[in-house]
């Protein structure tokens, strides 16, 4: 195993669990979250020379996974359209993933969801989030503001702090 492989292996071992949890909560599906995270780590290794130089490689993984989710959703939607009208994206009756907040998170537009994932789930600051997503800090703040407003509209209990995770 060469130096790059050793370095990537260490990063992978340290970041897998965090990234998988964040991606899973963001997409609301455990199996899909695992697939997306695995694919994102594979892409990270393919671009390791670039990714290793980032301040927060885990942010790159999550952005990559959520971007892949968009592609997956577009493809899935086409497949559903051709299949049974009763087909839906099942979350498998997961008490955590079916919670009101996580469900509301899934309904956000992709950019807002990416900002929430990086800013609130990964706890990156605005500048790093902006760098990760290729947007300005003020755009990140705008997306976050709109996401919070949407979540508050969706979940009135948020205002009373009485909600399921």
């Amino acid at each position: 195993m060469d130096e790059d492989q050793r370095e990537f292996s260490e990063f992978y071992a340290a970041a897998w669990d965090d990234c998988l949890r964040i991606v899973t909560v963001s997409v609301g599906n455990r199996a899909l979250g695992e697939d997306l995270a695995a694919e994102a780590f594979t892409k990270a290794w393919a671009s390791w020379r670039k990714v290793r130089g980032l301040d927060e490689p885990r942010g790159w993984i999550i952005r990559c996974a959520l971007n892949a989710h968009v592609s997956w959703w577009r493809r899935y939607r086409r497949e559903v359209a051709l299949g049974s009208p009763d087909d839906t994206v099942a979350t498998g009756q997961d008490p955590v993933l079916d919670g009101s907040l996580v469900a509301a998170l899934r309904r956000l537009p992709v950019r807002q969801r990416q900002v929430v994932a990086l800013r609130l789930l990964l706890d990156l600051d605005t500048a790093t989030t902006a760098e990760m997503l290729g947007m300005s800090g003020s755009t990140v703040a705008t997306h976050l503001h709109r996401a919070i407003a949407a979540l508050r509209r969706d979940i009135p209990a948020l205002n009373d702090q009485e909600l399921t995770p």
């Binding site: 992978y12 290794w45 998170l105």
Partner: peptide, 27 residues
């Protein structure tokens, strides 16, 4: 913001034990 962050963090931890990823050699 703080409330949402806390609840999302709780959701992450409530997922329980997550499956291990494929070995790095597989990647």
């Amino acid at each position: 913001l703080t409330v949402i962050r806390d609840h999302l963090a709780e959701a992450q931890h409530s997922l329980g034990e997550m499956p291990a990823g494929v070995p790095a050699s597989e990647i």
